[in-house]
Computed example of a mutant assay.
Amino acid sequence: MNTDAPLRLLLADDQSLVRAGLAALLDLEPDMEVVAQTDSGAAVVDLAREHAADVALLDVEMPGVDGIEAAAALKASGLACRALIVTTFGRPGYLSRALEAGADGFVVKDVPAEELADAVRRVSRGQRVVDPSLAAETLSLGGSPLTGREQDVLRAALDGSPVREIAAALHLSPGTVRNHLSSAIGKTHTSTRAEAAAVARDRGWL
């Protein structure tokens, strides 16, 4: 990266108003330039390569490829572009998953503009930036207790689908689905599958 040139930023967020607001704020910084924007996590690697981006600011919840998957793809691509997760959803599980995926930083969208700009600069220098209150909460909660199959079943249960539909979608027997749901309910200390799915979602485990 040329230290005399502005930092080249890529923004990925499926909410166009939020993306435009971030772009306007960051373009005010004399040492930054937003060179590409997208509403799709799937486009991040190609855009980072095409525009020689230094830092990609990624929302978590995007349709298709989400920000955490995009961060992992960016890491695997071998490009020099670093990944900073900037999200409304400050969930501990998201932080853990993002860092495991290779993200270089994680901040929430209500961070003051000067702090966001500082986070971008620090990430560009190879430093790791994590929202301190979220880091503390993540440590206190620990990692996800759910198995991969329990996560799959709860994810499918989020919209209230009946057991038989979940079983058909995941190619499992209804009995196996019920067993996974029962285990997940116990691990989340809830009473119903809807509550278990909501807790797992809110903690970023899904």
Score class of each variant (00 low, 15 high):
Thr3His: 12
Ala5Ser: 10
Ala5Gln: 14
Ala5Glu: 11
Pro6Glu: 12
Leu7Trp: 06
Leu11Ser: 07
Leu11Cys: 06
Ser16Val: 14
Ser16Phe: 09
Ser16Arg: 13
Arg19Val: 01
Arg19His: 02
Gly21His: 01
Gly21Arg: 01
Leu25Lys: 07
Leu26Pro: 08
Asp27Pro: 03
Asp27Val: 03
Leu28Pro: 04
Asp31Leu: 10
Met32Cys: 11
Val35Trp: 03
Ala36Thr: 02
Asp39His: 08
Ser40Leu: 14
Gly41Phe: 00
Ala42Lys: 12
Ala43Gln: 15
Ala43Glu: 15
Ala43Lys: 13
Ala43Arg: 15
Val44Trp: 01
Leu47Val: 01
Leu47Pro: 00
Arg49Gln: 14
His51Val: 10
Asp54His: 15
Asp54Lys: 05
Ala56Tyr: 05
Val60Gln: 00
Glu61Met: 13
Met62Pro: 02
Pro63Trp: 01
Pro63Ser: 02
Val65Lys: 13
Val65His: 06
Gly67Trp: 06
Ala72Lys: 13
Ala73Gln: 15
Ala73Trp: 09
Leu74Tyr: 08
Leu74Ile: 05
Ala76Met: 14
Ser77Gly: 08
Leu79Tyr: 11
Ile85Met: 09
Ile85Gln: 09
Ile85Leu: 11
Thr88Asp: 13
Arg91Ser: 10
Gly93Val: 00
Leu95Thr: 01
Arg97Asn: 09
Arg97Pro: 05
Ala98Leu: 03
Ala98Ile: 10
Glu100Trp: 05
Ala101Asn: 02
Ala101Ser: 10
Ala103Ile: 03
Phe106Gln: 02
Phe106Met: 02
Lys109Cys: 08
Pro112Tyr: 04
Ala113Pro: 12
Glu115Ala: 15
Ala117Phe: 01
Ala117Thr: 12
Ala119Lys: 01
Arg121Gln: 14
Arg121Ala: 10
Arg122Leu: 11
Gln127Met: 10
Val129Thr: 00
Val130His: 01
Asp131Glu: 15
Ser133Asp: 12
Leu134Asp: 01
Ala135Pro: 10
Glu137Met: 14
Thr138Pro: 04
Thr138Cys: 10
Ser140Lys: 15
Leu141Tyr: 09
Gly142Val: 01
Ser144Ala: 07
Ser144His: 03
Pro145His: 09
Arg149Trp: 06
Asp152Tyr: 05
Asp152Ala: 12
Ala157Arg: 05
Ser161Phe: 07
Arg164Glu: 15
Arg164Gly: 08
Ala167Ser: 09
Ala168Arg: 15
Leu170Trp: 08
Thr176Pro: 10
Val177Glu: 02
Ser182Lys: 14
Ser183Ile: 06
Ser183Gln: 13
Ala184Cys: 00
Thr188Trp: 06
His189Thr: 11
Thr192Ile: 03
Ala196Tyr: 02
Ala198Cys: 04
Ala198Thr: 08
Ala198Lys: 12
Val199Asp: 00
Val199Gln: 06
Asp202Ser: 15
Arg203Gln: 13
Gly204Cys: 05
Trp205Val: 01
Leu206Pro: 04
